[in-house]
């Protein structure tokens, strides 16, 4: 939903758009004082705008002012409430969503790893599309940043997945909202592609530079709700004589990404490769970048083959229990496993 639909004065609207708040989702996480600062208006006025916006997006956060008085402090109750009402990015596979607690969480860094060909890039592209599902359909209506270090992002594949996503939305429409007219504005796959900011990275210095630059970028594009890095690993697996330096660089990067996720209320998805680790006389599969890196992410999902089916396993998560679920990579994107005859659920 666009900011231009809000019942506020034209000058306020102009200020909102010129400082990067173009959609309602971009207003969902910002505090009144921050908004006042960005728009150069009084705090009361900012609070008014936020109230209008929250009423429009269906959430009635009346006590928004109360949180802002004590700067930065929040009770655990508030945080819980916020967490429960926050929208997650669906993976389009309901089994996977179930074990993730509804999808990929905003404000968190999620790492996804697996062998080549398991579907890491597919999941990355799927999430870059799904983050754009309109609020009317239970989505975030955000934009995505896609940082490609490996050159695996294929435009035609993103186009296919976007098309399937639109078809699913229409199907949902015809099932449940026969009389609802507001959903008529049909999205075009091209719009989905226009909302993916694509960075192609060819060295680890570029990777660090772009991650440092992201904060500025996101503050100019406040509706970015997902950052996908495919993969975090590739450029860090060559030419590093000094392993301590690598660990420091990676640690710094992880901290930056975590901060970014927190401050802008967005989901960071890092794709990782697997490697073999030599321990006690045998080789075992683990995610790349070593033990210290495994502390860097809030959530860790490992993709693996089980017979002829693809499975995802939650390896690390602060709130969800360890669990596995099958998923499939289809022509339409990530979906439920066909043998698992439940109907594909979209939202």
């Amino acid at each position: 939903m666009e900011v231009s639909s809000l019942p506020i004065s034209a000058s306020q609207r102009g200020k909102l758009i010129s400082s990067g708040y173009t959609s309602l989702s971009s207003l969902s996480s910002v505090s009144p004082s921050r908004l006042a600062q960005d728009l150069k208006i009084s705090e009361n006025e900012a609070l008014e705008i936020l109230k209008v916006a929250s009423r429009r997006s269906g959430l009635d956060i009346t006590d928004i002012g109360a949180c802002a008085i004590v700067n930065g402090a929040q009770t655990a109750w508030d945080i819980l409430h916020e967490e429960e009402s926050s929208v997650r990015i669906t993976t389009s596979c309901s089994d996977l969503d179930d074990i993730l607690g509804g999808g990929i969480n905003c404000k968190e860094v999620t790492e996804v790893g697996g062998v080549p060909g398991i579907g890491k890039t597919q999941l990355g592209i799927q999430l870059a599309i799904n983050v754009q599902i309109p609020a009317d359909y239970g989505g975030l209506e955000g934009k995505a940043v896609y940082i490609d270090t490996e050159g695996s992002f294929m435009v035609e594949r993103a186009f296919q997945i976007a098309e399937a996503c639109i078809e699913d939305m229409q199907e949902y429409n015809s099932f449940l909202r026969k009389d609802f007219q507001a959903c008529q504005n049909r999205k075009d796959p091209k719009d989905f592609l226009d909302n993916i900011f694509y960075f192609r990275i060819c060295s680890y210095t570029e990777q660090i530079a772009v991650i440092n630059y992201l904060e500025k970028f996101v503050s100019e594009h406040k509706d970015v709700k997902a950052v996908v890095i495919d993969s975090i690993t590739f450029h860090f697996r060559q030419d590093f004589e000094d392993m301590a330096l690598r660990t420091r660089l990676l640690g710094g990067m992880a901290l930056k990404l975590m901060k970014l996720a927190k401050t802008f209320n967005l989901a960071v998805i890092l794709l990782n490769q697997v490697t073999t680790k030599y321990s006690e006389g045998s080789f075992q599969l683990t995610l790349a970048l070593g033990d210290s890196w495994s502390h860097a992410c809030t959530n860790r999902v490992i993709l693996y083959w089980n017979g002829n089916e693809r499975y995802a396993h939650i390896d690390k998560s602060p709130s969800m229990r360890a669990a596995s679920a099958p998923y499939a990579v289809t022509g339409r994107g990530i979906r439920n496993c066909a043998s698992n005859s439940k109907r594909v659920k979209m939202m």
Partner: peptide, 16 residues
């Protein structure tokens, strides 16, 4: 070279 130079937007229609 600046980080924003790596940004390709909008995406091309087709990979050659």
């Amino acid at each position: 070279m600046k980080p924003e130079d790596l940004l390709r937007h909008p995406l091309p229609n087709q990979t050659p």
